[in-house]
Write a protein that binds this DNA or RNA. Structure first.
Length: 682
DNA sequence: CTAGGGTTAG
């Protein structure tokens, strides 16, 4: 808004006054600067033209993601000299944009904008697009090839409206009856726009379906994560008498990867092998690696990977990503070393996966090395997402200054990078910084989105400032974001943390469909403050509506029991878990050990520890140590100390804690008249 | 004509 005020006055101003506007306004951010510079060029070139400047200002003012990004307004100016031969002039486009703004037609506005950007990127295609319009205006009939090229242009520029118009034209002229290629191109276009309902409709109405049509449809479903539809279409394809080919399998593997369950994927793998479609091929092989990796079957992923005859960068990245996603960061980094030895150079995607690995295990040295490699390779400029990945890595390693530096050096600070900055602050318990960040982001012209709100609500929940939280709630309503269970659960969490149970309940009640995590966050809130009767009441309701408790609900229940020492109840739920096929995690076991320990049942606690399928970590031994100390159980205490000390070669803070414990126990030893050698632990 | 790996949230 500030920009509009300043720039509005720029209409009749000269070059010098534009300079002074820029200097005068502290709030002129980078994008505004770009526009002011563009205005300056305009002034230099041909004096002021209110028409053009006015048009661009409208664009700036509405600079949300739906309507053209102000940053790109400059393109209109830059393109001016080069664009003489075009059918649609810059002025016409601006007039169209103005029209869109007046009509509040965001879609059309975005489309014109997209087409314009696409013009920048796909020169040949642009000429097609413009030729097409000129041809029509001159009464020439476009042929199939023209239509095909124009559809490609629409896809590249995400021009949904134009694409639909072409579809109508093609149908009217009976082209769809004549040519499968154009039919499949239309189908492909709808899947690329994410309009799967329309795609299915087009598919159903095709005069006939060939293998390409089926593949296109299946891929469309697979890419958007509609696993069920993809699998059904795969079945139907075969019922219709079409043999799946390699491309079909690539698509269906993608769907299986989305499903997260390797069972179906294994079946597909068998089919691929039977048909002789793999045999060391890198493309199918990489898709198989990706599927197994995403489903958590890392051993199988590695096995398929080993069978690929000529591994390429994509095969390596798929494997690395699998390790990273399932918490094997060290393996991922090892894999990267092998990849480089094999002579492959990482690209943006590989870097993003690796940075995530470094962040997850706080491997700051590896992270720094990657950063310099990125700079050396010059990959930074070509991919803004690398900047976000770097920020995340630094924030995860608590290297705030480095993270901030990356942010400030970004060429384009978009909403994603602002969100990443905010998330980093929340991650590092700098809630106030996150709040400031929100203000700055907004004053820089980026309205918050769902991710922003989830993040900032978390900060607000931690601060426990009810007033701020309610203000945020009002703002969320104001922005009319689409319904989002993640926001709802963040809101409930925030209200619960502020002790505003009624407000939390109101949010909960307003949601039409309650998913498991919404129930969980509500129940967890009551559990935290020890309102056990509410917790178990809600649990009953949840079971009544047919929700099946998941791992996190069980840990909420066990924690609730743990807070209030309800050992029997906890025991009941702990056993219920396995009966209901929910696998206990380390957290569940830890909770049980804590409960037994605090009840003074050291033998039972120890039994759980010995039988759990994990190696006991520091936390568990420390819990046991505390319990042993309280019970004055010297033998178990010793065992706990020794184990804890062994595990504590890295963290000095924990070591101090253990020493204190040891000192406490030691006095008991002396009292008991026992003398032990404690040298190892000193 | 359809093709393999990825950026911000619970």
């Amino acid at each position: 808004m500030t920009l509009t005020r300043h720039a509005a006055s720029a209409i009749s101003l000269s070059n010098d006054s534009l300079d002074s506007i820029a200097e005068e306004s502290l709030l002129v951010h980078d994008q505004c600067k770009l526009i002011l510079n563009a205005l300056k060029r305009k002034v230099q070139a041909q004096g002021t033209s209110t028409d053009v400047i006015d048009g661009d200002l409208c664009v700036c003012e509405k600079g949300t993601h739906a309507v053209p990004d102000p940053c790109h307004c400059t393109l209109y100016f830059q393109k001016e000299e080069e664009e003489e031969g075009s059918a649609l002039s810059r002025f016409e486009k601006l007039a169209m944009l103005k029209e869109c703004i007046k009509e509040k037609d965001h879609n059309r506005g975005a489309q014109i904008h997209a087409e314009h950007i696409w013009t920048e990127l796909h020169d040949q295609g642009t000429k097609d697009l413009l030729c097409f319009q000129r041809m029509k205006s001159e009464g020439l009939l476009p042929n199939l090839i023209t239509f095909y090229n124009i559809l490609k242009a629409c896809i590249a520029s995400h021009a949904i409206h134009s694409g639909q118009q072409i579809h109508v034209e093609l149908a009217e002229q009976d082209f769809l009856e004549k040519d499968m290629v154009i039919c499949n191109a239309i189908l492909y276009m709808y899947t690329k726009f994410g309009l799967l309902k329309e795609a299915q409709d087009v598919f159903d109405k095709l005069p006939m379906q060939d293998v390409v049509s089926w593949n296109t449809l299946i891929l469309g479903y697979a890419q958007q994560g509609h696993v069920y539809e993809a699998l059904i279409s795969f079945e139907n394809m075969q019922h219709a008498g079409h043999a799946p080919n390699a491309i079909t399998f690539l698509s269906i593997l993608k769907a299986c990867a989305h499903a997260g369950n390797p069972k179906k994927g294994e079946e597909i793998h068998t089919q691929i092998t039977t048909r002789g479609l793999f045999e060391g091929d890198a493309t199918i092989g990489s898709a198989l690696v990706d599927m197994y990796a995403k489903c958590g079957s890392l051993v199988k992923a590695q096995r398929v990977f080993d069978d690929i005859l000529e591994k390429n960068l994509i095969s390596w990245t798929a494997l690395i990503n699998g390790y990273v996603k399932h918490g094997y960061a060290q393996e991922a980094l090892g894999c990267f070393k092998c990849m480089q030895l094999a002579g492959h150079c990482p690209n943006t995607v590989t870097f993003i996966c690796l940075l995530k690995a470094c962040g997850s295990i706080k491997a700051s040295n590896d992270g720094l090395k990657l950063h310099s490699q990125i700079v050396k390779q010059g990959s930074f400029e070509t991919a803004p997402s690398l900047g976000t990945a770097l920020m995340n890595m630094y924030f995860s390693c608590s290297m705030l200054l480095d993270a901030q530096n990356v942010f400030h050096q970004l060429e384009v600070q978009d909403r994603i990078s602002w969100n990443a900055l905010m998330h980093g602050y929340v991650q590092n318990s700098l809630e106030e910084y996150a709040m400031l960040c929100l203000e700055k982001m907004q004053s820089n012209g980026f309205p918050p989105n769902a991710v922003t709100f989830v993040c900032i609500l978390k900060a607000s929940a931690r601060l426990g400032t009810a007033c701020k939280g309610q203000q945020l709630h009002a703002e969320i309503i104001k922005y009319e974001l689409p319904e989002n269970p993640v926001i709802d659960s963040a809101l409930i969490d925030m209200y619960m943390n502020c002790g505003m149970f009624a407000e939390a309940q109101v949010v909960f009640d307003k949601v039409a469909i309650h998913n498991t995590s919404l129930w969980n966050v509500l129940i967890a809130g009551y559990g935290q403050v020890g309102k056990n009767h509410v917790v178990f009441g809600l649990l009953k309701k949840l079971l009544d509506v047919g929700i099946i408790p998941d791992q996190s609900l069980y840990s909420i229940l066990l924690n609730t029991c743990s807070h209030t020492g309800l050992l029997d109840t906890a025991q009941f739920y702990f056993e219920a878990m396995s009966t209901n096929g929910v696998i206990p995690t380390q957290e569940h076991y830890t909770c049980m050990i804590d409960l037994y320990g605090r009840a003074g049942l050291l033998e039972e606690a120890r039994l759980i520890l010995e039988n759990m399928p994990f190696l006991a970590n520091r936390l568990v031994w420390r819990i046991l140590l505390t319990a042993s100390y309280k019970q004055r159980s010297i033998d178990l205490g010793w065992e706990a100390i020794e184990h804890a000390a062994q595990l504590d070669k890295i963290n000095s803070a924990a070591r101090v804690c253990i020493r204190n414990m040891y000192a406490a126990i030691k006095s008991d030893y002396i009292l008991a008249g026992e003398i032990h050698s404690l040298k190892d632990l000193q």
